[in-house]
Design a protein around this nucleic acid. Structure first.
Length: 468
RNA sequence: GGCGGCGUAGCCAAGUGGUAAGGCAGAGCUCUGCAAAAGCUCCAUCACCAGUUCAAAUCUGGUCGCCGCCUCCA
């Protein structure tokens, strides 16, 4: 089986062929750092995490670039509202973003370029477009003329002539030749205050779309493998990126475009007016387990709308618990070494590996892969119940589960080591109490452990414990 | 007006021609000092209608319902 993706550009499933065998360059549109990112944003970021982890699982070397949009209308307005400099304002949200990524166990990209530190690259790109006749100026601003790019609309599957035109656009955007044109460079206005750059293009700031063209090509080359984002970025943002990049370089830009669908909350698109708008921090305040949130975001195919519900989080938490319980059992299997399963362990594991891998290769069908994984989980538990696993077999199974977890990243428990050591002592005491048939003491210790928020389970191999 | 997606058990969800994965919840059983976990068993004919086919959740046409995009938005 070969890795296949549904390419938004062609709307077809295609076999993935990186430009350089074994290596993948991917650009993932990052956050505009003017507030805390919400759960819908994280649906996309977790999808991109699944993508990079899957690529690595499949043996590719990945270079991921994720930008920070740290200058635009919203960041400027935000900084003015708090009276901070733009840099100080956005720095807070950049840091918060990284904290949130850690909470959700999203792996770090290789490069996080910021728009404000790549002004020169953008200016050079705009100059290149100007030389090739794709731009025009008005009052110091520079616009991209989409009529100069015949391929415009291909990604979004929109015919420019049939786009709906509204009166509102006509009124607001009178300075453009065509309402569909977009700004590459915005001339300074008094509302921008201290936010401007004096450049060869004049005094002003870059438009939004140009940063992604400039920074992706700087770090990944003029033509690279994968570009991803939420569906809402498909048009106009990504369409404009294609226009800018192709017109500037004269060659194709991105091989494969991947777009993740929207996340709904309780069946509705998230919005502040509906009261179903949640940042990650809001959800943590409600006591939700971040790993359960991660699992939920992961377990629905990225091109399907995901309905986020609190019941769903509970179901995910249980599924994660099942995986963790098995992992603990495998870790401790050496304590009651068996005679060997007669090949059952190996066969089950190899079948699982083949099916799990095939599902991932099929446009990142993680839901299908998980279905197959849980079949193996049952088999593994059965073998443990029968106490037949040899030490080597248990290790093989444990290794496979760890390998799966290089994609899922849900096994590790968040707990501070002091608490764990403390509970471990109570568990030890309880073992002694039980050995002495002092069940009253054993029950008292169990209650104590549970009061600390932990659960202890007695198994054939001795007690195991974990956070509730 | 133009483009696109979706509708599978109580909930989530996989499955693009061969007779319905998996998770959660629920019921019963086994095991168990207790408590859990685990294992076993049970729980759907795939929105509706009409076609194509030896065979359709899967293809075609239509109906109903839901959702998204057409320059703020992951």
């Amino acid at each position: 089986m070969a890795l296949r993706f549904h390419n938004s550009l062609t709307r077809q499933r295609e076999t993935f062929q990186p430009l350089v065998p074994g290596k993948v360059g991917m650009y993932t549109c990052g956050p505009t750092v003017y507030n805390y990112a919400h759960i819908g944003n994280f649906r996309t970021f977790v999808f991109e995490d699944l993508l990079r982890r899957s690529l690595r699982f499949l043996g590719y070397q990945v270079t991921q670039v994720m930008n920070f949009t740290d200058v635009d209308d919203k960041t400027i307005r935000g900084s003015q509202a708090t009276g901070e400099s733009l840099d100080a304002f956005t720095a807070r949200y950049k840091q918060a973003f990284f904290e949130d990524l850690d909470t959700l166990r999203v792996e770090r990209a290789e490069v996080y370029p910021e728009a404000t530190t790549h002004i020169e690259e953008m200016v050079a790109l705009i100059e290149q477009l100007r030389e090739r006749g794709h731009t025009y100026e008005d009052n110091g601003s520079i616009y991209f003329r989409i009529a100069s790019f015949p391929g415009y609309g291909r990604l979004a599957n929109l015919n420019p002539d049939q786009m709906r035109t509204s009166g509102r656009v006509d009124n607001d955007e009178y300075e453009k030749e065509d309402v569909r044109d977009f700004a590459l460079w915005k001339a300074w206005t008094p509302e921008d205050g201290p936010v401007f750059w004096e450049t060869r293009l004049g005094k002003g700031r870059p438009g939004w779309h140009i940063e992604c063209s400039a920074m992706s090509m700087k770090y990944l080359g003029e033509h690279f493998d994968l570009h991803t984002g939420g569906v809402d970025n498909r048009f106009p943002h990504h369409e404009n990126e294609i226009a800018q990049s192709c017109c500037a370089t004269g060659q194709s830009f991105v091989s494969t475009w991947l777009h993740s669908e929207f996340l709904l909350v309780e069946g509705k698109k998230m919005s502040k007016s509906l009261g179903n708008f949640y940042t990650l921090r809001d959800l943590l305040d409600k006591g939700l387990d971040p790993v359960a949130i991660r699992y939920t975001l992961l377990s629905v195919h990225y091109r399907a709308q995901l309905n986020f519900s609190f019941d769903g989080i509970e179901a995910s938490a249980q599924a994660v618990r099942r995986l963790r319980d098995l992992y603990r059992r495998l870790e401790q299997a050496h304590l009651h070494q068996g005679p060997g399963s007669g090949g059952r362990a190996e066969v089950a594991t190899e079948l699982c590996r083949a099916d799990f891998t095939a599902a991932l290769e099929d446009d990142l069908n993680l839901a299908g892969a998980l279905g197959r994984l849980f079949l193996w989980v049952r088999e593994a538990n059965s073998l443990l119940d029968e106490a037949v696993l040899s030490v080597a077999e248990a290790q093989t199974m444990e290794l496979w589960l760890k390998e799966v977890d290089s994609v899922l990243d849900v096994l590790k428990e968040d707990c501070d080591e002091n608490a764990e050591a403390c509970v471990a002592r109570l568990v030890e005491e309880r073992v002694k109490a039980k050995a002495a048939k002092d069940f009253a003491a054993a029950d008292r210790l169990r209650a104590e452990i549970e009061a600390l928020g932990w659960v202890v389970k007695d198994t054939a191999a001795g007690p195991v414990f974990h956070r509730r």
